[in-house]
Design a protein around this nucleic acid. Structure first.
Lengths: 206, 206
DNA sequence: CGCTTGACTTGACAGTGTCAACTTTACGCC
DNA sequence: GGCGTAAAGTTGACACTGTCAAGTCAAGCG
């Protein structure tokens, strides 16, 4: 945590401090707990100080979201790394990384997946978002066929992973619970099939 | 809109009026615009009047959510009715109803799909939720095989529909736009396969 | 007629984002 | 080196939020 030097008038790096404070608050208290004034307090600064660095709360959230995208991308890359070379396994891997990010950093997840226009324009956030999406596009590429282009395959994978992550978030699915909601992504993944995988999901082949 | 009789002390049906006011506000201003005080004002009553009928804002939202589930269920049933008798077509139909509800009543959609525990316990909301879910379970039944039970199939369909709806909400998918985001659910649906449908998504067979 | 109970109003409080005015510091320029 | 200016942070205010406590008023009942 970067705090303002006591007594000094200038913080030195308030912008960065506010973003870091925001990330901490998000992990501790969730998205609802994120407040401009709390960020300011945690950075050791008065409640209106952020105004000089962020026009409004949306601008601060946008800056935090840019960081969140990087965590998100890392999580997806880790999921891919855990998978082998098989294209289908890599799709499963990136999906697992996607879902792990959504569950372990749920506030960040909900900070970045927000309707277009929620935050003011921000090239840094756009860049981080594009970078993360390129990872998904690359993995999708390997299971896409010319017949149905890249983006359709990408959206199919994306929809499945995102939807499953949301069902966990709202408690409709609860992997490892042992009750009726105990459905893992590995159970669901076989229902997603690609040209190279003429899968009957009831087969054990994967 | 049910308003309080001018001058009279008792409203008569404030509980119902607050719920209806809430539904209107949700459709007009979205989930962010829903406020206890605005509901009270629209019902023609003072800002603290709702306290006698709803302990807190969560209880009011819960009551509104119960209504929203009914709209949701209707939308799914309409989607099914538009499909024929083929089980797979009925899955597509309910998905289209699901997605239509999410786009046309996005505030209601986000009101009902919230983490478990967001609202106080409410038997009415639970009943409405269960009723809606039973519709999905029934449609899933027809494409499920004993090998992988009902609920797994249900979650697969649910994940796909929910995820796709969310991608539209956040603007990552924009059907009918003509640009790179122009991907319809019919494009994505074939990637979902069941035992009875050994589908290669590149085939035209659907 | 009077009392009790429920429904609603009024006023307050803390917390939120945002704005305007003020103070203080740091930096460039002569 | 001193000084003026612009940036950075503080203070105080405003409207809005949910929530609570106290008061008012009406309906119903013994």
């Amino acid at each position: 945590m970067i705090k303002k030097p006591q007594g000094k008038q200038h913080h030195g790096n308030l912008k960065e401090a506010l973003v870091l404070a925001g990330l901490e608050i998000l992990e501790e208290d969730g998205l609802e707990g994120l407040t401009l004034r709390k960020c300011a307090a945690r950075a050791g600064v008065s409640h209106a100080a952020p105004k000089h660095h962020f026009d409004n709360v949306g601008a601060l959230k946008s800056a935090i979201a840019a960081r969140a995208y990087k965590v998100f991308e890392t999580s997806m890359r880790e999921g891919i790394a855990e998978a082998g070379d098989d294209p289908l396994e890599r799709v499963r891997g990136i999906s697992n990384g996607y879902i792990r990010f959504a569950t372990e950093h749920n506030a960040l997840f909900n900070l970045i997946f927000v309707p277009h226009g929620t935050y003011p324009p921000d090239p840094e956030r756009d860049a981080a978002s594009d970078s993360a999406r390129r990872v998904l596009a690359e993995i999708s590429q390997a299971v896409a066929t010319p017949r149905h282009g890249l983006s359709v395959t990408e959206v199919a994978i994306w929809s499945m992973a995102h939807g499953y992550a949301k069902l966990i978030e709202i408690g409709r699915v609860l992997p490892g619970s042992g009750d009726g909601r105990d459905i893992s992504f590995d159970d669901v993944f076989p229902f997603l099939t690609f040209a190279a995988d003429q899968g009957d999901p009831s087969s054990d082949a994967n």
